[in-house]
Write a protein that binds this DNA or RNA. Sequence first.
DNA 1: TAGATTGTTAATCGATTAACAATC
DNA 2: TAGATTGTTAATCGATTAACAATC
Lengths: 227, 227
Amino acid sequence: MKDKDFAINNEEQITLTRDNVSSAVIKRLPRYFRYLRILIREGKMRISSAELSRRMNITASQIRQDLNCFGGFGQQGYGYNVTYLYARICELLGVSAGFQAVIIGGGNLGRALAKNEMFEKRGVDVVAIFDVDEALVGTTVNDIPILHIDEFERYAATHTVDMAVLTLPKAQALEMAQRIAETDIVGIWNFTGQELDSVDGNLIVENVHLGDSLMTLNYRLNSRNKE
Amino acid sequence: MKDKDFAINNEEQITLTRDNVSSAVIKRLPRYFRYLRILIREGKMRISSAELSRRMNITASQIRQDLNCFGGFGQQGYGYNVTYLYARICELLGVSAGFQAVIIGGGNLGRALAKNEMFEKRGVDVVAIFDVDEALVGTTVNDIPILHIDEFERYAATHTVDMAVLTLPKAQALEMAQRIAETDIVGIWNFTGQELDSVDGNLIVENVHLGDSLMTLNYRLNSRNKE
DNA sequence: TAGATTGTTAATCGATTAACAATC
DNA sequence: TAGATTGTTAATCGATTAACAATC
């Protein structure tokens, strides 16, 4: 928490505005990010909310409403400048913040993520992979070194690491999260299925429940069969 | 589409009721599924909406409202019978429907999924993995055979396959989706990042955008830094 | 200036929560 | 019967959509 005296200045007010943005809007930002990348690839310079609405299959009204939560990114009578809008959204999403990540768990999922261009596209730098398997230690995946998990605390203390990607077995997730909580790492991208909310109130945890996604597909297949 | 004469009978009406369930409710069902499994593991026989609400961190009102979309699963003065409720939710989610899946792409992600107990827990049977790599063909992952992608159509024609899990490179996703659309497969669990909505209106596509999840974490790390 | 399109307010819609009668 | 807790209706809240004045 900051000194209350600062609570009145401009910067703080901008931050407050952002904090008031509803999670419904925030959850849509990554989608804007993806579509803007496509527009850039296509060489499109400007886009109106109406055209973007057709592409994204949401209302133009929602697009304008969403983008306005963070300030006026467009221009009346013109629309939105694609590269400018993209830059603003990147800023919001911390794409240019230079976050550094470690992957904990060098199994198939950890390796799949390590090879995925997703991190690079989103400005996240994967700096190390940790595993217990001595056979893996010393090798690399996508030029990222695999280190022994015993080295984790030393590594975290001597490097800037913003987030840990948990791809180890569920049974070890809680213990690992506790070890992470004792370092300067603040974010956990949690693929283990283990609930981590209780570990530390300061940790920011993003849970990926692939099973929930599979279930949604199942539900739809199932109701289709019932028709 | 069914004959309109049937639209009045009872079965159809139940189906209609289910179809009217909002997607907000449907998206919560997998979470109920997970928590009920935990309760069963703990040997809990009954649970009230109040207690479940404390565990799941949602209101008791919402739980009762959600479950009532599908009929009265509880009992006044008693609460919900855990195994009964679990059975009903499994039914809704098609866990007992015996769906069969193939994984297309035998890379790290495909292998990670093939080894994951998630499918088994949710009643989905992974029957085959397809890949272009001749070195992989003939081997198995978690007892699941890896077949050559050229065999795909023949396999689909001679086996019951309900869904395809796409874990191949984005560039090949569209073409593969088209091949899938020509078989009897109706569901695609799409990890490729490629939009597939345009391929075939009859396909049920569930997209997994891991990058969106990463971005959400990034956003929160970023706004934390701004505080 | 006229046309286009945003930013923003107001109206609508849907989802969540509260309350309580029904009932086990 | 008394106590507990659901099922369900009504009230509230929030999110989406529509409309239009501001302005490029």
